[in-house]
Simulated assay, not measured.
Amino acid sequence: MMTSKILFAVLACTLIVGCDRVDPNSPLGQRQAIFKDMLKTSEDLGGMLRGRLMFNAERFTQGATHLDEISRQPWQHFPQVRENLDGSQARDEVWQRQERFQQLARELEASTAELRAAAQVQPLRKPALVDPVAKVEAACRACHDEFRVY
């Protein structure tokens, strides 16, 4: 009897947690996946420059290229009208101030393109990458400060 109660409680908790998930095919789910990929990639690049990770020129170049490619993807997953979904960390201002939001998106794309170009110069030298990485991080932070709910 006790085993069935415990099993029921575990099943109920699993169902409750499962219901809170975002549909990965929804616009919200798609942009969250891209943003998580962007975060992981930029953290790895910054980690290589700051000594948290071992610097690997080939991996850095691949990461910079990947970051540049995915930096252009999340914007298409912001519908014209805000979704009524929990789980979004976007402020209403994303939809109310589209011109500014798009401006910051273009600034991020420009900074990742600059980083990608810097990462193509061989031999790769860490000091030449510090400013481009800082610009990417600043572009991310600027958009988060204006448009993300913390």
Score class of each variant (00 low, 15 high):
residue 129 L to I: 05
residue 104 L to C: 06
residue 16 I to P: 03
residue 111 S to P: 02
residue 124 L to K: 01
residue 81 V to T: 15
residue 95 W to V: 08
residue 95 W to A: 02
residue 68 D to H: 15
residue 54 M to A: 15
residue 94 V to T: 01
residue 71 S to L: 03
residue 143 C to G: 10
residue 39 L to S: 13
residue 35 F to Q: 03
residue 89 Q to T: 12
residue 78 F to L: 09
residue 129 L to T: 02
residue 56 N to T: 09
residue 9 A to V: 15
residue 18 G to C: 04
residue 116 R to G: 02
residue 56 N to D: 15
residue 99 E to Y: 10
residue 133 V to H: 05
residue 48 M to L: 08
residue 5 K to M: 11
residue 48 M to R: 03
residue 122 Q to I: 03
residue 143 C to K: 05
residue 133 V to G: 00
residue 11 L to D: 10
residue 14 T to M: 15
residue 13 C to K: 06
residue 69 E to D: 14
residue 74 P to T: 00
residue 122 Q to G: 00
residue 57 A to K: 06
residue 2 M to W: 14
residue 129 L to G: 00
residue 113 A to H: 06
residue 143 C to D: 07
residue 148 R to D: 05
residue 65 T to I: 12
residue 121 V to A: 06
residue 135 K to V: 06
residue 94 V to P: 00
residue 148 R to P: 00
residue 44 D to Q: 10
residue 80 Q to P: 02
residue 85 L to F: 04
residue 97 R to T: 04
residue 115 L to C: 03
residue 72 R to T: 11
residue 144 H to N: 12
residue 87 G to S: 02
residue 4 S to C: 11
residue 128 A to S: 12
residue 27 P to S: 12
residue 140 C to S: 02
residue 50 R to M: 08
residue 113 A to W: 00
residue 54 M to F: 04
residue 111 S to T: 10
residue 47 G to D: 06
residue 15 L to E: 06
residue 61 T to W: 02
residue 102 Q to F: 09
residue 140 C to P: 01
residue 67 L to R: 01
residue 145 D to Q: 14
residue 54 M to N: 12
residue 130 V to M: 11
residue 130 V to E: 14
residue 33 A to T: 09
residue 68 D to Q: 15
residue 31 R to A: 03
residue 136 V to P: 03
residue 63 G to M: 07
residue 102 Q to S: 11
residue 40 K to R: 10
residue 36 K to F: 09
